[in-house]
Each structure stands twice: as structure tokens, then as C-alpha cells.
Design a binder for these strands. Structure first.
Length: 850
RNA sequence: GCCCUCGUGGUGAAAUUGGUAGACACAAAGGACUUAAAAUCCUUGCCGCUUGCGGAGUGCCAGUUCGAGUCUGGCCGAGGGCACCA
């Protein structure tokens, strides 16, 4: 048997596909399209196993859909702006552009080694002016629509990366990339008005049937819609402060009012700017706001003002007003009314400052002596101690009635609030898309005119300075518009902007005049299947959805509201972690094992290795397997097969050397099967064996059906198992001599089933068998899907007692007769009476006997 | 604290959606071939009695059903998301 030489064969087919532009896709309105997209990579240097998994899953789908006759768009590009380039450049005194381009060409070659069915003609790179010039135009378009604005705002300042972070980029009070504690800083920033579309973004989720529920729930929570009421509280104690507006979801508990609490950034704070005690209090708050400990403990502290707020439903009820650290300025109005009895947070505060606790909601079964002391009651019940509200059912009925009452008295309004905040997109960074804006001497904003776009990044600049490098480029900063001199905006756009519309660019990637061609976009969009990591569940996916909303806004030619009709989130690739005795991470390459499965350092066999938990592959933990090395050792088809086997694609997969080897061996075995069949076909003799021929045909068609179903459901790991079964079956039955044409016909089907997973081997085998490859997905033939004989399960009183091999579609009476003829039945149940029969056709029979 | 998801052999996992639990693979043990090793192939897989069969069995406890890994309720455990959101 000839050994499968993947090195030669894989290279041969890869260059064949490239040369023949086998995966080039052109708009064709007579053909159904399928847009298959995997999240594009950041060009960090080398592809990693996560990419292999992501792109293999996508490639299987793209190839399958193409074989099914779809016009498949399957492009690839580079998310190539961002801080790693800038950091690497800073550290090694390089140019970010060169660094990025080098990485791209390296990774492009590595991706090509995987044999992906990519239309490389559509390749894009977000750091290229030919991409970001369109992004600048888009920015101005959104600006004209009023969806972009500038405001001074507290920002999350990352002191290590020296940049502003979006709320989503702050994790546990730390920068998502640097891990540094985030500080509060006031800066002028550009914002996208994403919150304008809160409702659409929320409602749109309902229609995304092919999205994982998990992602939809996460986005829903992130948008955070809540229904309630705004109440302006009349305030006395300072002539200049007439009222303080609060938002509440529980207006029904208004008679439990005990205090008002406002944020330290609330507009009324300006009246306390000179108050030393208030200044100290503010300091205390900002301290506790940034330390991790305080975030966890979250002790509630307040600063009492001399103001008194009036209960709008009872003018005689007056309560103190506090500044409090737990009130956020950027939610609602930055002010809340405290009802300690029915809100745990308010209760904690009331207990600390000895404030009144008045219970106004009691559970249905309690009487009017019910009283809250240390545990707030937030459940349903009846209102009491509440004057005209007494007897109402809390929460729903009471809330609606109270709002009605307040509206009638003009003391409040129904209000819906969202947690979603506008997206701050300014970054004080060099390696990003320049914001196409400028300022005159007074600081007034002016757009860079379209004929002066793109605003190119200056090249060859010094990055070894603190702060924003662009701010120090005096030449670059100065711009002449209509003969007048302006200063450019020196901030660049958050890189999440780059990835919010790249899928549109792919539809017409070479269009120089427009970011996307409307006709092309209307044909290809939406993306039918988007595939990527769960880590983008909120940020990238929500921003992309916002972009579609904002492009559609006031635009009759574009009404794609959802970019991705299908979403699949694949799991991570994991590996065991290793440490040496001095607690240093050790790479799997540096380890050997002895007979007792103990691990040792390769270059110091005395040093025992401590095996740690299985974690997702990361450079920092050094538990990384390099895809390129694996491809060189085992070939692309083997690594594709392994990455699909073992675990369902949505779950994490654990890298295993044995598993990788097993996949490699299976590829070799398949080739062995090919060789065996080729030699049968090349033989002059032919045979006939109708039983075996029928068997092989039935098996094949049933397999077509199974694999097709499993492809539709992303059960790729099961497909691998199906193929193992196929090999076992074929290998066995081929020892029987039968008609050559039957073998050939069925094996061609098999090769087509294999080709989305192992495209090189399938292509080579088809060629060697001299099959004209029409690249069509096989259709199962109905008559072969049924077996003549079937195993019926016989249960007696609900327990499996035997199985009977019988003809298919046997009817109940016939089956019972043959059961009664069995030795087993006569031995054990001859004297029993059948009182009930449950018969499931072609599956089982359950006899209830007495 | 709130929300979501998941608990099946030594391991990764299958299970036509309520109908043979453990397909397929990894690992292990035993065997075959071999001078030997590698490779390859076969067998075994929890508890009983010798094969065959019987029994228990899908985190735990109940329920619905002729029949539950699958449905319902409660509990336990793991993972993930959000976190002073008023």
C-alpha cells in the first residue's frame, strides 16, 4: 500500500485552487447565495489553534454549501489596527505598519496551508487607507445624521495603556488588556449614539432564531430595559435647587420614602464645591471606587445635606437628601429615592444612618403588623400604610395605578430606562483610524471635507513618548480647509469600529468610491452564518448590529437591520498546563514522560513537572501547540479532522497528542481504503454479489442522510464518528467480491461526504479514480434508506427482555406471534396473559402481562 | 445577590427529540502476529453466578408515563455572564 504523502498532495491542491480561483464568488441573482463568515483575525504573528478551529468549522460549512449549489461568499481579512502593533513597535523600535504587514503575510500563508476555501481576491485589511478612508466617510455620514457627538465626560482611563476604555472594556475595575486599575478622568470624547437604538437592538434579538440563546440573553441584560417612572421631588433648603428628579421602577413604594440619594457628580454638587467635608467625602468615594477590595465590599456611605425633599403624594412628608457613593450619575437621573423596607441597598444605607424604615408592602398571607427590620421585602403582596394606595396589588397593579396618580397630579411620568450607554469611540492612540475632524482656534468642530479624505496616518513617527503620539505631530496636526487653518482631531477610533462593518466591505472589497456597493450588499447580506468566539457576545456583535441600524437610519437604499442572521459560537482549544519546581510555566515541547506517566523536563530529566489544570491555550501560560508545526508533521487534513472530532464545536476541546495521532492514522487508513478500491477498479476481473452490493449501497445512502443532517446541525464531531463507522464497514465488506461499478459509485459518494472535512484527500482520490468531479453534494435515494430487516426491542412490563431480528414494517399481531414462538417467552411467560400492548413501529413492542 | 448553561464509563463524547443508554474514539488490561520492538488486528469494559443470563445504572430525591439521559418540581455540584442599574 502506498503511503499518503500529504506534503505533496496538499500543496498540489492548494495551488490548484488558487490558480483556478476555485473559490472566487461573483454576484449572480439567479443563484441562491450563502454568506459564510468567520470572525477575522488580529494579525498578531502566527495563527493559533483557536483560528484553526474557527476557520475549519467555517470551511466545512462553506464547502458543504457550495456543493449544495449555493453561491458561497467566504472571504478573509485582517483586523489590523490596534495596540499590540503599537506596543510591539514601541518595544522593538519598529514601524507598526511593517510589523503588521509582516504578520499578515505570515499568517496568510499559514491559513493557506489549511486549505481553506477562501476567496482571497476579496482580502481586506482595516489598517489600509483603502479600508479606513471609507470608515472616515461613514463616520461623517453618521455625524450628519446626528448619531455622532462630542461631549466632555468622565472616562475610564487606563494608566498603563494611557488610553480611554469603553465601559465594556473595563472588567472588574481593570483594563481589559493591561489589567491596570482604571481611573476616572474628564475628557472631551466622541460618542456614537447607540442608545438611540436601544429598543430596536432589543426587539431585533427576538427575530434572531439562529443565534445561541446565551448570547441573546447577554445582550438583553446589557441593554437592560426597565420600566418605571420619573418623579421630580420638590426640594427646600436651598433657593437655587427647586427639585431633584429621580427614576424608579417601584413608584408604588413611595409611601415608604425615607431619604433621597444623589450621585456625587449630580448637578447639585456644584453648590457644595467649597464645602470641605463634601470634598473629603468625594475623595473617599473615588478611593473606594477604584480599589478592588471596596468594589467587592461595596460599603454604602453618604453625605447629608441640609436639603429636605417632599413626598409628592403627601406634602407633609419630608425626608433628608444625601450624596451617596452607590448612586451612579450615568443611569437614570443620578438620583434615587430611598425606600429601605423594599430595597436591600436602601435598607443597608438606612440602617447605617439610622433612617426611618416604613413597611408599605406585605406578603399576601401576612397581616398589617408585618414589619421589615433587616431583610428588605421585594416580593409581591398588598400595599398598606400607603393612604390612597392601600389595598393595591404589588407590584404590577400598584405601579400602574401610582404612575397614573402621579401623572394626573403632574408630579411624575411613566419612563423607560436603559442600561445601555452611548459608545465612546475616542482613543488616544496612534495605530488606529484617524477621526476626520478638525477644530478652529475657538475649539469649534469642522468636518474634513470629503475631497480631503482619507486622513492618512503619518508614517515613521516616534512612538517612544508618553501620551498620544499623534498629538505631537505638529505638521500633521495642522490642516488647511477652504484656506483657513485648523488643528486636526488627534484621537483615533476604537478598533471595534473597524470590525463593525467589515462584513459589508467584503461584498465589494475593491470598490474605490464607496465603502460598499448597495447592489452587492443587498445580494450578499445578511451574513447567513457567522462563526466566532463567545468572547464577542456583547461588544463586537452589538456594535455591528448598531452599525446596521445607523446606516439604515434615514437611508432608503439600505434596510438591513441585522447583520448576522445565523451565529455560531465555537468553544476554545485547551491544553494541560505545566510548571517546573520553581513555579515557571513550561511548554509541552519541553517535557518528556516516563513509564509511570510522570512528566520531566527534557533538558533536565531529574526535574519533575507539576501538571496543572486544563486551560485555554495562551502564550502567557505557555500551553500552546503551534498549528504550523502540526500541519508540517501531520498535514492539514489530519489537523482539520482532529479539531472537529472529540468535542462538539460549541464546547471547549482539549488538545491531545494521542487524538492528533489517531486522526493522522485515520487519514492514512482512508488512503489505504482508496488504494484498495483503486486496485479493485484497475483489475480486469469483475464479480457479482447482489447481497453485498445492496448492503454497501444502503449503507452509503443512509450515511449520506446521517452526515447531511449532522452538517445542518453543526454536529461535526458526530460526522467524524460517522466516517470512522464508514471505514470500519467498507474495510470489512470489501473482502467480499462484488460488482466494480457498485463499489465505485458508492465510494464516490463517500469521497464527496469527506470533502468538506478533508478536501485534499478527497480531491486527490477523486482524481486518481478518474472521476469527473462536479462537486455536487450527493442526495440520498429514498428506497435505500429503509432496511429489509430490523431489530425490534421486546419489552415485557417496561423492561427490555429480548430483541428480535425481523422484517421491516412488521405489524403488531405478526410480531406478537413470533414473540410467543420464542423459547424465552414460553419458558418465562407461557402462563401469563397480555393485558396491554404498546407498539412502536420499527422500534419496539412493550407487552404488559399478568 | 440576580440571570443563563451544563452534570452520561478511567477520558472526550453519542443517543433518530419520550422508545436497545454508552455509537465513535482516546486510555488501560489481556491476547494474536513477530526472534524482539514498532505498526496492525481481536477481546474485555459496573455488580453477581462458569459460558449465557440476570441485576443495578445517565449528580441526588420525588412526580408524570406502558416506558425518562430526554418532560415536571425540589435539592446538590460545576462553569459562564452581570453586578450598587434605583
Amino acid at each position: 500500500m502506498e503511503r499518503y504523502n500529504f506534503k505533496i498532495i496538499e500543496r498540489k491542491w492548494q495551488s490548484y485552487w488558487i490558480k483556478n480561483k476555485s473559490f472566487k464568488s461573483l454576484i449572480n441573482k439567479n443563484q441562491k447565495k450563502f454568506y459564510c463568515l468567520e470572525m477575522f483575525p488580529y494579525p498578531s504573528g502566527n495563527i493559533h489553534m483557536g483560528h484553526v478551529r474557527n476557520y475549519t468549522i467555517g470551511d466545512v460549512l462553506a464547502r458543504y454549501k457550495k456543493m449544495q449549489g449555493f453561491n458561497v461568499l467566504h472571504p478573509m481579512g485582517w483586523d489590523s489596527f490596534g495596540m499590540p502593533a503599537e506596543n510591539a513597535a514601541r518595544q522593538n523600535n519598529l514601524d507598526p505598519k511593517n510589523w503588521t504587514e509582516k504578520n499578515i503575510s505570515k499568517m496568510r500563508e499559514q491559513l493557506k496551508m489549511l486549505g481553506l476555501s477562501i476567496d482571497w481576491d476579496r482580502e481586506i485589511s482595516t489598517c489600509s487607507p483603502s479600508y479606513y478612508k471609507h470608515q472616515q466617510k461613514l463616520f461623517l455620514e453618521l455625524y450628519d445624521k446626528g448619531l455622532v457627538y462630542r461631549k466632555e465626560n468622565y472616562v475610564n482611563w487606563d494608566p498603563v495603556d494611557k488610553t480611554v476604555l469603553a465601559n465594556e472594556q473595563v472588567i472588574d475595575g481593570k483594563g481589559w488588556r493591561s489589567g491596570a486599575l482604571v481611573e476616572r478622568k474628564k475628557l472631551n470624547q466622541w460618542f456614537f449614539n447607540i442608545s438611540k437604538f436601544s429598543d430596536q437592538l432589543l426587539d431585533g434579538l427576538e427575530k434572531l432564531d439562529s443565534w445561541p440563546n446565551k448570547v441573546k440573553v447577554m445582550q438583553k441584560n446589557w441593554i437592560g430595559k426597565s420600566f418605571g417612572c420619573e418623579i421630580p421631588f420638590t426640594v427646600e433648603g436651598n433657593k437655587e435647587i427647586k427639585e431633584i428628579k429621580c427614576f424608579t421602577t417601584r413608584p408604588d413604594t413611595l409611601f415608604g420614602l425615607s431619604f433621597l440619594a444623589v450621585s456625587i457628580d449630580h448637578p447639585i454638587s456644584k453648590f457644595y464645591e467649597d464645602d470641605k467635608e463634601f470634598i473629603n467625602f468625594k475623595k473617599l468615594c473615588s478611593k473606594s471606587g477604584t480599589t478592588e477590595e471596596a468594589l467587592a465590599q461595596a460599603e454604602k456611605i453618604g453625605f447629608k445635606t441640609k436639603l429636605l425633599a417632599q413626598n409628592p403624594l403627601d406634602n407633609n412628608l419630608k425626608v433628608p437628601v444625601y450624596f451617596a457613593n452607590f448612586v451612579l450619575m450615568d443611569y437614570g437621573f443620578g438620583a434615587v429615592f430611598g425606600c429601605p423596607a423594599h430595597d436591600q441597598r436602601d435598607l443597608d444605607f438606612a440602617l447605617k444612618y439610622n433612617l426611618k424604615i416604613k413597611t408599605v408592602v406585605k406578603p399576601q398571607e401576612e397581616n398589617e403588623n408585618f414589619e421589615v427590620t433587616t431583610q428588605a421585602y421585594t416580593g409581591p403582596g398588598k400595599l398598606f400604610n400607603s393612604n390612597m394606595l392601600n389595598g393595591l396589588n404589588a407590584p404590577e397593579e400598584a405601579i400602574l395605578k401610582t404612575i397614573e396618580l402621579l401623572e394626573n397630579k403632574k408630579k411624575g411620568n411613566k419612563k423607560i430606562n436603559f442600561r445601555l450607554k452611548d459608545w465612546g469611540v475616542s482613543r488616544q492612540r496612534y495605530w488606529g483610524c484617524p477621526i476626520p475632524m478638525a477644530y478652529d482656534k475657538k475649539g469649534n468642530v469642522i468636518k474634513i471635507p470629503e475631497n480631503q479624505l482619507p486622513v492618512l496616518l503619518p508614517e515613521k513617527i516616534n512612538l517612544k513618548t508618553n501620551g498620544n503620539p499623534l498629538d505631537q505631530q505638529d505638521n500633521w496636526k495642522t490642516v488647511t480647509i477652504d484656506g483657513k487653518i485648523y488643528k486636526r482631531e488627534t484621537d483615533t477610533l476604537d478598533t471595534f469600529v473597524d470590525s463593525s462593518w467589515y462584513f459589508l466591505r467584503f461584498c465589494s472589497s475593491d470598490n474605490e468610491n464607496h465603502g460598499f456597493d448597495t447592489e452587492e450588499v443587498n445580494y450578499w447580506m445578511p451574513v447567513d452564518q457567522y462563526i466566532g468566539g463567545i468572547e464577542h457576545a456583547i461588544l463586537h456583535l452589538l456594535y455591528s448590529r448598531f452599525f446596521m441600524q445607523s446606516i439604515s437610519f434615514k437611508n432608503d437604499n439600505f434596510n438591513i437591520n441585522e447583520p448576522f442572521s445565523g451565529l455560531f459560537t465555537q468553544g476554545m482549544v485547551c491544553h494541560e498546563t505545566y510548571k517546573d519546581q520553581s513555579n515557571n510555566w513550561i511548554s509541552p515541547d519541553e517535557i518528556t514522560t516516563d513509564d509511570n506517566k510522570n512528566y520531566f523536563k527534557k533538558d533536565d530529566p531529574k526535574e519533575k513537572i507539576i501538571v496543572g489544570p486544563v486551560e485555554s491555550m495562551s502564550k502567557s501560560k505557555r500551553n500552546v501547540i503551534e498549528p504550523e508545526k502540526m500541519i508540517e508533521k501531520y498535514g492539514a487534513d489530519s489537523i482539520r479532522l482532529f479539531i472537529l472530532s472529540d468535542s462538539p464545536p460549541e464546547k471547549d476541546i482539549q488538545w491531545s497528542d494521542q487524538g492528533m495521532l489517531a486522526s493522522y492514522k485515520f487519514v492514512q487508513k482512508l488512503w489505504g481504503l482508496h488504494c484498495k478500491i483503486k486496485s479493485i477498479l484497475d483489475d480486469d476481473k469483475n464479480y457479482s454479489n447482489s447481497e453485498a452490493e445492496e448492503k454497501i449501497t444502503k449503507f452509503t445512502h443512509q450515511l449520506i442522510q446521517k452526515i447531511t443532517n449532522n452538517l445542518e446541525k453543526f454536529n461535526y464531531n458526530v460526522i467524524v464518528a460517522n466516517l470512522y463507522e464508514m471505514y470500519n464497514f467498507f474495510n470489512k465488506i470489501l473482502s467480499v467480491k462484488m460488482n466494480k461499478e457498485v463499489i465505485k459509485e458508492n465510494f464516490v459518494h463517500i469521497l464527496k461526504l469527506i470533502s468538506p472535512l478533508m478536501p485534499h484527500l478527497a480531491a486527490e482520490s477523486l482524481e486518481q479514480l478518474k472521476i469527473e468531479n462536479k462537486n455536487e453534494w450527493p442526495e440520498p435515494i429514498e428506497k435505500y434508506l429503509k432496511d429489509d430487516n430490523i431489530v425490534m426491542i421486546v419489552q415485557i412490563n417496561g423492561k427490555k427482555r429480548m430483541s428480535i431480528n425481523t422484517k421491516v414494517d412488521i405489524i403488531q399481531d405478526e410480531l406478537i406471534t413470533s414473540i410467543k414462538n420464542t423459547e424465552y417467552y414460553n419458558k418465562n411467560y407461557a402462563d401469563k396473559k397480555i393485558i396491554k400492548t404498546i407498539f412502536v413501529k420499527n422500534r419496539l413492542i412493550n407487552l404488559i402481562v399478568k
